[in-house]
């Protein structure tokens, strides 16, 4: 893709197309900006704020920010990494993220992005919220403990699978994922293990049954290489058939 427009990120010129976001331009140039609710295959959501960058002195969400010339973007200073780490620490203490007991461990984007920010402790006081699981679906499990409300399943199920399965209900700390079925159970909804939405969860909230530890701990995506090198978990699932729907501002 040729373009003569650029902005600068960490001292490097990043080319961009008109209407392209800072995130998309950076990823295309091979520069990693941490993200959780964003999946480059789908329109941005801008809810997790982990992709925060400093643009000309202001903190901006790079997945929703349209690139412009003369932008000076800080993606890697200690100050911006501190901000991201704080956001991640809040995500960790709000849920129940018991990595040693989670079958997503090693393939989990939340964990990998936390490693990227050099997070060693949760810092804050844990909420230890009482949350359940929904095992009602024959092929898929849902763990409320691990859901970070990124909204990816909601968006992908609606926009790609053309189904009405997921929604985020409630407000603030009471927000939770809900399923569209008479019983409220995932197993009674239209959800299928072959849906695109079954592949996009960045954490271990939506997991297929019967395959838990097929890839042993130690051989997983983020066990030996950082996410800035190997990319998103979901990229693995979409490696054969990338799903692109519309531009960043559809």
């Amino acid at each position: 893709m040729s373009t003569d427009k650029t902005f600068r990120m960490d001292g490097k010129a990043i080319p961009f197309e008109a209407g392209e976001t800072v995130m998309d331009a950076a990823l295309r140039a091979g520069e990693y900006i941490p993200h959780l609710c964003h999946n480059p295959n789908f329109p941005p959501h801008g809810s997790c704020r982990v992709c925060v960058v400093d643009v000309n002195g202001k903190h901006m969400c790079s997945c929703t920010l349209e690139a412009a010339e003369h932008m000076e973007v800080d993606n890697s200073s200690d100050a911006i990494i501190d901000k991201r780490r704080t956001l991640l620490q809040m995500l960790f203490v709000e849920g129940n993220h018991t990595c040693p007991a989670c079958e997503k461990s090693g393939d989990c984007q939340l964990q990998a992005v936390a490693y990227h920010t050099r997070m060693l402790s949760p810092h804050f006081t844990h909420f230890f919220p009482k949350r359940s699981i929904d095992p009602s679906h024959p092929d898929m499990m849902f763990y409320y403990n691990r859901c970070i409300l990124c909204g990816l399943c909601v968006r992908v199920s609606r926009d790609v699978d053309k189904k009405s399965v997921f929604a985020i209900s409630g407000r603030g700390i009471d927000s939770r994922l809900v399923f569209n079925s008479p019983s409220g159970k995932l197993g009674d909804s239209d959800f299928s293990a072959t849906d695109e939405a079954a592949k996009v969860c960045p954490v271990g909230a939506i997991l297929p049954k019967h395959v838990g530890y097929e890839t042993p701990i130690g051989q997983r995506l983020y066990d030996n290489k950082p996410i800035s090198v190997v990319g998103d978990t979901i990229a693995k699932n979409h490696s054969e058939k990338p799903v692109v729907i519309g531009g960043p501002h559809e």
Partner: peptide
């Protein structure tokens, strides 16, 4: 020094907090 998952974030024992 907090050593290990249990010391750092409660780990497996903290699963009883449910």
């Amino acid at each position: 020094v907090a050593v290990g998952a249990c010391a750092v974030n409660g780990g497996i024992p903290a699963m009883r907090n449910q």
